[in-house]
Design a protein around this nucleic acid. Structure first.
Lengths: 101, 101
DNA sequence: ATCGCTTATCGTCGGTTACCGATATGCATC
DNA sequence: GATGCATATCGGTAACCGACGATAAGCGAT
């Protein structure tokens, strides 16, 4: 889970994801041009995203077609919502449940 | 934005956030016991989370009361949804919009 | 003013990450 | 089987991150 969040924790990878989301079809090596990094670096980022299960690559020789994995980020979204939906009634520092030595 | 995602990209920090979400009141140094790391390390994680704007600390001498910042993760949630809501109709590799030399 | 409690900061060390150029791989074509 | 294209992998370097112990800082109580 943390790995998935970590995958999003880099500007270049976010750019790649946004690019994949905005592109109707799918793009091959244009990602390299888009992010402005070396081909090997982009390939590494793609590998990280793929390992995190966020994207998937479909081979279409000689290129590889990358696309977002639908619903892959759902768990992360659920976690965020779980964190966000706190009862605001729970005021701060009312009854600190400290371990009472 | 990437910084916020990066803040979530560590098991210890996720544990802290979950802990803050589950705790009705707020806790002080119990976080240290909960995550099982050194006090300095936890303090560092708290600083990162605070810098990312995910949590906030309210001073209640001699301790500090940490709590989640309501709605702070909303932008990240929006981003994820933006990525998740892709038209699944957009098939892969139908018309790769490559730059045609 | 001193002590005790809690948190923040500092210095350091080891592991990981990001980046690059160069090179290897895989496949279709000729 | 050699060539060309797109991607993956390798080797190396610089920067960052995470962890720790030690130490400083802030404040209430004595």
């Amino acid at each position: 889970m943390a790995a998935m969040a970590k995958a999003l924790g880099h500007p270049a990878r976010l750019r790649i994801l946004r690019l994949l989301a905005r592109t109707p079809g799918c793009i091959g090596g244009d990602i390299v041009d888009a992010v402005g990094l070396a081909q090997s670096t982009v390939s590494e980022h793609l590998r990280i995203l793929k390992n995190a299960g966020v994207i998937e690559g479909q081979i279409d020789p000689p290129r590889v077609c990358y696309s977002l994995k639908l619903g892959a980020l759902r768990p992360l979204s659920a976690l965020i919502e779980e964190l966000d939906v706190i009862r605001s009634e729970s005021a701060c520092c009312v009854t600190p449940v400290r371990a009472q030595g």
